[in-house]
């Protein structure tokens, strides 16, 4: 499985990006990631969540997952982030360089 996350926006507007090939990870790292992709029903999620009408300085995420059979991208801003996606984004974010 290949997971690609781009985080933009936030107060600092600092772009962070990570591309993970799960097979190159240890099982302790791979299992929660692949498990959360499955638990979130990632491939059934809409490609775009509505932008929040109010608020500012929130993070914006673009997540792409390729499981070998399917490729799907989800774009979502933090205030519209469904609870089902939050743990997955937190888990992927652990892999930002540094």
């Amino acid at each position: 499985m290949i997971i690609h996350l781009v985080r933009s926006g936030g107060f600092g507007g600092i772009r962070r990006e990570v591309r993970i090939e799960t097979r190159s990870l240890s099982s302790e790292e791979r299992e929660p990631l692949e498990g959360l992709v499955k638990a979130s029903g990632f491939f059934s999620l809409p490609g775009k969540f509505p932008r929040p009408g109010k608020g500012a300085d929130f993070f914006t995420y673009s997540i792409t997952v390729d499981d070998g059979e399917r490729v799907h991208t989800v774009e979502v801003s933090e205030p519209s982030l469904p609870d089902i996606l939050r743990p997955l984004i937190r888990e992927i974010s652990k892999h930002f360089s540094g």
Binding site: F11, G12, G53, G55, F58, F59, G98
Partner: peptide
């Protein structure tokens, strides 16, 4: 949490990751 924001009602502040 590496961020601060306004959610349309209030302000929120993160502690930062402590590394960067």
């Amino acid at each position: 949490y590496d961020n601060a924001g306004w959610d349309g009602r209030q302000m929120i502040y993160g502690d930062g990751d402590g590394v960067y």
